[in-house]
């Protein structure tokens, strides 16, 4: 069996286990669905009045504006929740047995990443349906929506690699805040409620250089049928993905050394 085939078989086995656990245990599934759904409801419902502010321009309406944010958020948090699962696997001893048994350990990380992406796609699908039922307007084509999904899956992969690096280094659930807080802060230092032009103060300065801004602006472009900043978003996914892969690889090495 070639190295690639071994990695593939490990990745598929780990992915299947992750997907099975995520979809058969309501305690795992509900938070990852309810949180984005709730944010969508709370932001699109409670803050929609802000679209009447001067210079707020987004033709598809505030629900669509927030849907784009929730897509990116669901994708990123799909990765974070997978990091929690990895930490729990270490606490229960399963991850150590997995490290011993797997003929290709890189496949373990890829497997976790696949399960996070499936989870994110499911959550985005649920939020999309909820949005459509509540009257959300989508001006983007099927191609735009597929591009949005691909970008979200890329974000999910980056977040999973980030969380994997932490989970494999610290190997405890107590590391959960370390996995989620940086991502939470990164997301909220981006144009969450209004377009970037309407943000004031230091958050505006930070948002200009925040990769999450590129993800949000590209996502909103896809939703409104006027793709924007797609190249920047793609470059951010690739660049951050490469850095996060190195980070996850270091985590894997650390877990291997710990035995």
């Amino acid at each position: 069996m070639s190295s690639l085939a071994r990695a593939r078989s490990v990745a598929l086995a780990v992915a299947w286990r992750g997907i099975h656990n995520a979809f058969t245990n309501p305690a795992f599934l509900l938070p990852s669905v309810m949180f984005p759904l709730f944010f969508f409801m709370a932001f699109a419902g409670g803050l929609s009045g802000i679209q009447n502010a001067p210079n707020f321009e987004f033709k598809s309406g505030y629900s669509s504006f927030q849907f784009a944010f929730v897509c990116v958020q669901a994708a990123a948090f799909g990765g974070v929740f997978t990091g929690f699962a990895i930490a729990a696997d270490f606490e229960f001893g399963f991850a150590r047995r997995l490290l011993l048994a797997a003929p290709n350990r890189g496949g373990i990380v890829i497997g976790y990443m696949i399960s996070a992406m499936v989870r994110a796609a499911f959550v985005i699908g649920v939020v999309f349906l909820a949005g459509l039922i509540s009257g959300m307007r989508i001006d983007g084509s099927i191609g735009d929506l597929l591009a949005l999904l691909v970008m979200a899956l890329g974000v999910s992969a980056v977040a999973t690699l980030w969380a994997t690096g932490i989970a494999m280094r610290l190997r405890t659930m107590q590391a959960a805040p370390l996995m989620q807080m940086p991502i939470f802060i990164l997301l909220f230092l981006a144009p969450v409620y209004v377009p970037i032009e309407l943000i004031v103060g230091w958050v505006h300065d930070v948002a200009q250089f925040n990769p999450a801004t590129a993800f949000l602006e590209a996502a909103r472009g896809f939703v409104s049928g006027e793709p924007d900043k797609v190249g920047v978003a793609a470059a951010c996914v690739v660049g951050l993905g490469a850095l996060a892969a190195l980070w996850a690889r270091g985590g894997l090495r650390s877990a291997e050394r710990a035995g």
């Binding site: 802000i50 009447n52 502010a53 001067p54 802060i185 969450v192 943000i199 004031v200 958050v203």
Partner: peptide, 17 residues
């Protein structure tokens, strides 16, 4: 406090309503 900072910048446009 972090959320206060983020929200007061992000939602400042609401004060124009």
């Amino acid at each position: 406090l972090v959320l206060l900072a983020v929200n007061s910048s992000g939602l400042d446009a609401a004060t124009k309503l």
